[in-house]
């Protein structure tokens, strides 16, 4: 069964008016890996992962996840299958407490496939929320409104929400943007832990983070994949050097 890849896109394209943001991309992921996508601004990275997570509909092409075609699935149905996206711009629910923020995610994971009137197990919900908050070390701020958290902690809260959804594929869109050095170190440790149970797809500009985390790197440029390989291979690649790293 090795033939069935975890995630696979075939000739995936997205056009905005006259502009082709993603142009016939064949991309695939192995279960359990940490993959980074790098590339200059406007290369189509966010557009690609947006199509994978269902925020954007592709203009052409297909997406398969665990052997099933998900090209036309709406975002909520993809979350149900385990594809979870974290926003580039922090978008926690600012007026709600940390607990409520994570509870929204946790109850979704707990009620998948159940009828809406099905009672929820409050104890299970609370333990799932606390568990997710503990993993990002925010459990002591459970009652704090998200807006009162410092920026770095808001990003962690965002991550806790994603964790509570029990992702199989976690898409992180520039997760370390705006974080301090110390926060980035902590964040990288977390991502490694998460990678024990999930596949991670990461868009990242910070090359230190990429080199630290990624098992494989995909380089995008002008809406297409320019190169793909291990960090060592990518660093050595002349074309990549020219297009991106070497400038």
């Amino acid at each position: 069964m090795a033939a069935v890849s975890f995630l696979e896109t075939k000739a995936l394209s997205r056009r905005f008016g006259g502009l082709t943001a993603v142009d016939g991309v064949d991309f695939s992921l192995r279960a359990g890996e940490i993959r980074a996508i790098i590339g200059p601004n406007g290369a189509g990275k966010t557009t690609l992962v947006s199509m994978i997570s269902g925020r954007l509909a592709p203009s052409d092409g297909a997406i398969r996840f665990e052997g099933t075609d998900i090209t036309r699935l709406p975002p909520w149905a993809r979350v149900a299958r385990g594809i979870v996206y974290t926003f580039q711009i922090t978008s926690v629910f600012r007026n709600l407490s940390c607990f409520e923020n994570v509870a929204l995610a946790a109850q979704r994971a707990l009620t998948l496939g159940k009828a809406p009137w099905h009672a929820i197990d409050q104890a299970a919900l609370a333990s799932s929320v606390t568990g997710a908050l503990e993993r990002v070390q925010l459990h002591e701020r459970s009652d704090t409104p998200a807006a009162n958290l410092p920026y770095g902690h808001q990003r962690l809260l965002e991550l806790a929400m994603s964790l509570a959804l029990k992702p199989k594929l976690l898409v992180l869109d520039e997760p370390t943007q705006g974080l301090s050095e110390a926060e980035i170190t902590h964040f990288c440790e977390l991502v490694r832990e998460i990678a024990d149970d999930a596949t991670i797809l990461l868009i990242e500009h910070n090359m230190d983070v990429v080199m630290e985390l990624a098992e494989r790197i995909t380089v995008m440029s002008n809406g297409a994949i320019l190169a793909e390989g291990t960090p060592a291979e990518i660093t050595a690649d002349a074309a990549v050097q020219q297009a991106y790293l070497g400038a």
Partner: peptide, 21 residues
């Protein structure tokens, strides 16, 4: 739990969609 989702929709519907609702 339905009310929790409704309030979240008021705050940011796009985010609620991406949480799988």
């Amino acid at each position: 739990r339905v009310g929790r989702v409704l309030i979240a929709i008021r705050e940011n519907e796009e985010r609620v969609k991406m949480l799988g609702y």
